[in-house]
Design a protein around this nucleic acid. Sequence first.
DNA 1: ATGACCCATGTTATGGGA
Length: 256
Amino acid sequence: MKKFATWNVNSLAVRLPQVLDWLAANPVDALVLQETKLTDDKFPAAEFAAAGWQVQWFGQKTYNGVALISREPATDIAKNIAGFADEQARVIAGTVGGVRVIGGYFPNGQAPDSDKFVYKMAWLDGLRAWLQQQLAEHPQLVLMGDFNIAPEDRDVYDPVAWAGQIHCTPQEREHFQQLVGLGLTDAFRLFEQPPKSWSWWDYRNLAFRKNQGLRIDHILVSDALKPRVTACEIDKAPRRNERPSDHTPVVVTLDL
DNA sequence: ATGACCCATGTTATGGGA
């Protein structure tokens, strides 16, 4: 049995105690983090090591930043997308127990008519090209992270209000389907799930209390792993913490 | 109601997130 998880922590400096608490309660084989918002010299490697975790990290000042935490050492570490020049620290990958684990903080895109949306589209093109190679090299692969894409209307609390808005545009959803077309499966949808399952709730407007959110954090598994998936769940508990991240972890369980 | 929050920044407002 193996477990892999993803969590956008929205500043690891703020959330480190919550991450360590969560790992103690949820001893997964690997956890990928997004939005650490730390330069590499400030990464709290010693704190993870003291708790018995291996860690790889890749960050920058103020924005973005990713990490790969694992019980066993990760090998063949990759940072960002080979073949796609990027100033922003958004991807970290490693092989853990024979499984290629890729963690990504996909661009937000801000608004469909913005330069940031153009960047998001180019980034997704680059990701897909690289993933095709990664899948050829590593048949057992999980792609996890904050995709900043709500794949379907059932992933949106108010699909009418969000129609055409960022995270819900046809272009973003087409990119998600193109990733699926590489031979990947949304592990969450392999199982019957509670309706109105979200992974993110706005800090504003009492959104969590009213359960107004989006499902934008995902775990995609390769065809080789798909028959091994026994569970995939969103863990809402950390969203109830004091000073929570606006995202909450997603966990997949595989019979390996 | 084009709002409401949270995080980082050598801040006391601004940009970004989603």
